[in-house]
Write a protein that binds this DNA or RNA. Structure first.
Length: 851
RNA sequence: GCCGAUGUGGCGAAAUGGCAGACGCAACGGACUUAAAAUCCGUUGGGCUUAAACGGCCCGUGCCGGUUCGAGUCCGGCCAUCGGCACCA
């Protein structure tokens, strides 16, 4: 596109203002006590999920949320807030390491290059970040504090009395290592041979690695774990007071997966041992006709009797050989093997067989269940396949006992001497109390949430500040932080499960008697607390200064960050992990708030023009810089949000960008015109005249709507309303400069370059508005300009519109009714019918009812 | 299977229980132009009625029912699409 065809000269306006903003530090937010800090202003902390700087650069999906937050940031500044709006880099991670393996280039170099690229792109869009607060998780000055926080976690335990994290020194037990919030355990991990690392459950999708899609197998390994499950209840309860979408809260609740029930001990027949099971339906105990142990349950070997040893061993081998994918395949039939052993049902002392089956998972509950085929779909299927007894013990409403087999909801207890006639709820209470009295069981709560597998066998991550001595781990002193990873030539996995750091023999050797931990932390670590570091990013004494933390994370609500915007893909893990760390830091007194993020919004994905997910494969990826080249950054920003509601998934459309670009050009031409020489000069039509009544009405309607819409993040309708205003002003022979200035202010958060330039141009000819547009105040609407003397009233007959009349605003209901009945069209519609009722809605409508 | 979200013109989408489709795109017509682009103005849910215009009428927000003077919006029951979890006892 050549110079002449640009709808307005964004190509020089945009770089001009970006330079001014940078040089004059317009968007730098000083901390309390620093120069230019204004204590009287309220604070607003608006945060984006910081990106992983990949080699591919930004695509149009990233800036959607970033534009939304930037509009909020600019709007809040005009409203007189101290705004914290930072950006940084979540730069540890696999791609840079994989690239290093392929090319030998150190991940730090790749990361530096990618960060530079991302930063250039973000700056080109005109975001008002305070770049002086930029952080990078791979910077030793940053991960020093990531390691420090790990030590806080390591040096804490969860006190069940106070339900809080406390320093390990307050623990009175014999073995503190057994209760630390960071502990080492031999666990079955998701080992990915291809990546040469273990993965968290969350990083495994359908038995394959989330990154790369490589096969993942189960394998026991010694791993660092974080005891997040201790906080399950608080993570659950804390959701209540947060302004998050219900759907996101539901995802977290679902992930935590709290279920209440009972543990029940079944005595093994002829042995002095019991099998403990967890059930949410203790009321169905009389219907428990068999038990099942998970194949990995260590009791299996002990109890299996002679003639069944071969079949059980065979079954367990067969299951062990299966991948996770095969095991969780729902379509398959139930399988299992009888152990030959029996247990005693504590309710009725009946002997019931003990089976092994893979539909019972070792990782949930106790790794054993009581089989109640009458009222559990899985147990029913299993019992039917293996011919086990099925007893109905809960009667479904309106059904016979036999018809109630397979009924899994609440009903009335039957065939249960102690419980007969009780509702499910009452029966649960009674049987639990009965079991507790006899010490055969107890109330119990189970969670799906597992402890967080926190170690990775990688190079490009934070090393653990831990050394091993005589087989025991101990923390490094704080003075040795940051602990930097060793320089390596070869980043390849060792293939044995030993991390790449194991290759750095000198580095590992800490002293004659101690050696360093060679695992590194997962990528989640750095992002668990970056929002805190932004408050005080250059502090080298503390992970965040107390005063900046209290100021920026302050406020009346429990969460400190006022608005957090990012992709829904982080709805569970990142947000749960960050909340967990935050609660530990809160308990230990390091931060002032119990929750990190008060209001959370997930932006929807942007699809390609073909309606498919953007991907290289479809060739439908849109590069923001290509769009900006043709239409400018302001048009790009506006289109990102004009497309539709922020949270919705929606397809990209270049035609749509063009439409928005036309709108901005119309704004430009409201104020500017081309002279004979083809130069843009201030238009003669811009005059210092008062806006007329209709202009004032649309202007103030726009102020009101845009303000309300920004608050609710309804940016698409805010832009629509500004289009209406511009359309209304376009044909005015004289453009009142006051109205234009208001328009520019309203549009400024959306199109900051264009409006800055026009504001400056207006100021040259029309005095009275000193300073840059970003230094002005947000306009307020005046209700007086919205009301009219006369108002249009809709006349309905039986709910259908028949006529419209214009009538005085203050017309009484009686006058409205009279006017409606006088309408010729209404009379025609009601002719020959009896009027039964007339509904009058003041200032809106009159409905004449004849039925 | 469970949980959640969504369903409105040719397309992206608007609509405190009160005129369905604002605004934008696309399309069509007009003005300007030698011409095109750009720009400006106008038309645009479907159908019936009418020679045409004006006017009038009917239908229409995934489907079926309900509440209401009045339902895209509230309630009940389905269907479809997308997302999450998934043998979680």
């Amino acid at each position: 596109m050549n110079e002449r065809r640009k709808p307005y000269p964004f190509d020089w306006i945009e770089p001009k203002w970006q330079t001014i903003w940078d040089e004059q530090r317009f968007f730098h937010a000083p901390n309390p006590g620093e120069k230019n800090f204004v204590p009287a202003k309220p604070k607003f902390y608006v945060l984006d999920m910081f990106p992983y700087p990949s080699g591919a650069g930004l695509h149009v999906g990233h800036p959607e949320g970033y534009t939304a937050t930037d509009i909020i940031a600019r709007y809040k500044r005009l409203l007189g807030f101290n705004v914290l709006h930072p950006m940084g880099w979540d730069a540890f991670g696999l791609p840079a390491e994989q690239y290093a393996i392929k090319t030998g280039q150190h991940p730090a170099i790749t990361t530096r290059e990618n960060v530079a690229k991302f930063k250039t792109q973000l700056k080109r869009i005109g975001f008002s970040y305070d770049w002086e607060r930029e952080v990078n998780t791979t910077d030793p000055a940053y991960y020093k504090w990531t390691q420090w926080i790990f030590l806080q976690i390591y040096n804490s335990w969860f006190n069940p009395e106070t339900k809080k994290a406390e320093p390990i020194s307050t623990y009175r037990g014999a073995d503190p290592d057994s209760v630390r919030l960071a502990y080492v355990a031999e666990v079955a991990v998701n080992w990915c041979p291809e990546l040469g690392t273990v993965l968290a459950n969350e990083e495994v999708i359908d038995g394959k690695s989330e990154v790369g899609g490589f096969p993942v197998v189960r394998r026991p390994m010694r791993q660092w774990m974080l005891h997040i499950t201790a906080f399950a209840d608080r993570l659950l309860d804390g959701l209540e007071a947060l302004d998050w979408a219900d759907s996101i809260k539901a995802l977290q609740r679902n992930w935590i997966g709290k279920s209440e029930g009972a543990e029940i001990d079944f005595k093994i027949d002829n042995r002095n041992e019991t099998i403990r099971v967890f059930t949410t339906r203790p009321d169905t105990l009389y219907g428990a006709t068999y038990m099942v142990l998970a194949p990995e349950n260590s009791l299996v070997d002990e109890i299996t009797t002679g003639e069944h040893r071969n079949s059980v061993a065979g079954y367990r081998t067969q299951i062990a050989a299966k991948s996770d994918l095969e095991r969780t395949d729902l379509a398959k039939e139930k399988t299992g093997a009888f152990t030959g052993a029996f247990a005693i049902n504590p309710a009725n002392n009946e002997q019931i067989p003990i089976w092994v089956a893979d539909y019972v998972l070792m990782g949930y509950g106790t790794g054993a269940i009581m089989g109640v085929p009458g009222h559990d779909a899985r147990d029913l299927e299993f019992a039917q396949k293996f011919g086990l007894r099925i007893i109905p013990v809960v009667q479904a409403p309106g059904k016979t006992a036999d018809e109630s087999i397979g009924y899994v909801d609440d009903g009335i207890a039957i065939n249960s001497p102690l419980l007969d006639g009780l509702t499910t709820e009452a029966a649960k209470r009674k049987i639990t109390a009965w079991l507790e009295e006899r010490e055969l069981g107890r109330r119990s709560i189970n969670y799906k949430l597992r402890d967080w597998l926190f170690s990775r066998q990688r190079y490009w991550g934070e090393p653990f500040p831990v050394v091993w001595r005589d087989g025991k781990h101990e923390a490094l002193p704080e003075s040795e932080l940051p602990l930097e990873p060793p320089a390596l030539e070869d980043f390849k996995p060792t293939g044995t499960g030993e991390p790449p750091l194991a290759k750095a023999k000198d580095w590992i050797r800490y002293s004659d008697s101690a050696s360093r931990e060679t695992n590194t932390m997962p990528q989640w670590a750095g992002s668990c607390w970056y929002y805190l570091r932004f408050c005080d990013p250059r502090n080298d004494q503390r992970f965040v200064g107390e005063e900046p933390e209290r100021y920026w994370m302050g406020g009346e609500k429990p969460g400190g960050v006022d608005l957090y915007v990012g992709g829904v893909e982080h709805a569970v893990l990142h947000l749960l992990y960050a909340r967990f760390w935050h609660k530990v830091l809160f308990d230990l007194g390091h931060v002032s708030k119990p929750e990190p993020f008060q209001r959370l919004v997930n932006q929807g994905m942007i699809l390609g023009e073909d309606g498919r997910k953007m991907s290289k494969r479809w060739g439908n990826v849109i590069d923001p810089l290509d769009v900006i080249e043709i239409y400018g950054a302001d048009a790009f920003r506006c289109y990102e949000l004009f497309m539709g509601p922020l949270e919705q998934m929606k397809p990209w459309s270049m035609k749509g960008v063009e439409g928005v670009s036309r709108f901005l050009a119309r704004v430009w031409r409201l104020i500017m015109e081309e002279n004979q020489a083809g130069e843009w000069i201030l238009s003669d039509e811009v005059q210092d005249v008062a806006a007329d009544k209709s202009q004032l009405k649309v202007l103030h309607t726009t102020i009101k709507k845009v303000t309300g819409d920004i608050e609710t993040l309804s940016f698409n309708t805010a832009i629509s309303q500004m289009m209406i205003l511009v359309n209304a002003l376009t044909n005015a022979p004289a453009k009142p400069v006051s109205a234009l200035r208001t328009l520019l202010l309203l549009l400024n958060p959306f199109a900051p370059h264009l409006t800055s330039e026009l504001w400056e141009t207006l100021a040259e000819k029309f005095p009275g508005a000193a300073g840059d547009i970003t230094e002005q105040s947000w306009p307020r609407h005046d209700e007086r300009f919205l009301v009219e003397d006369e108002i249009e009233i809709v006349l309905q007959v039986n709910g259908k519109v028949r006529d419209k009349i214009t009538i005085a605003l203050d017309a009484t209901n009686a006058e409205l009714e009279a006017a409606a009945l006088a309408s010729e069209k209404v009379q025609r519609s009601v002719a020959g019918q009896t009027i039964r009722k007339v509904v009058v809605v003041a200032k809106k409508l009159v409905n004449v009812v004849t039925r």
